[in-house]
Amino acid sequence: MTRDADVDALVTYVVTSLVEHPEEVAIDKQETDALTTYEVTVHPDDVGKVIGRQGRVVKSLRVLVRAAASLNGSDATVEVVG
């Protein structure tokens, strides 16, 4: 059975749900042969909410994104740019 995950929609949904200013969320997708990187830019006041204490929120987001991408047979990660 083949499953397809919409990783782009997952990243957008989770990040916009976390922040106070969802209209200022920008997600840039960088693709290479082996890895897709989602560069997340948010309002300066929301950076801490996306990163979380000791990076726990962004680590959890990376786990979710990597698991969803593996359903498509690829690898992905998330970076918070600012």
Rank of each mutant, 00 (worst) to 15 (best):
M1A: 15
M1Q: 10
T2V: 15
D4A: 12
A5D: 09
A5H: 06
V7I: 14
V7S: 11
V7R: 08
D8L: 11
D8H: 14
A9S: 13
A9H: 14
L10T: 03
L10H: 12
V11F: 04
T12S: 14
Y13S: 14
Y13T: 06
V15G: 04
T16A: 08
T16E: 15
L18A: 11
L18Q: 10
V19T: 09
H21L: 09
H21S: 09
H21I: 04
E23P: 01
E24W: 05
V25Y: 00
A26K: 08
A26D: 14
D28L: 00
K29G: 00
K29L: 06
K29Q: 04
K29N: 05
Q30F: 09
E31A: 11
E31F: 04
D33V: 01
D33Y: 05
A34V: 12
A34F: 03
T36Y: 12
T36A: 02
T36V: 10
T37R: 11
E39K: 04
E39A: 11
V40S: 09
V40C: 06
H43Q: 13
H43T: 01
P44M: 07
P44D: 15
D46Y: 01
D46S: 09
G48P: 01
G48I: 07
K49V: 06
V50H: 07
I51A: 13
G52W: 08
Q54M: 06
G55T: 12
V57M: 10
K59N: 15
V63L: 03
V63Y: 06
L64C: 06
V65Y: 01
R66M: 08
A67Q: 07
A69Y: 04
S70Y: 02
G73S: 09
S74A: 11
T77H: 00
T77Y: 00
V78M: 02
V80E: 00
V81M: 00
G82S: 11
G82V: 02
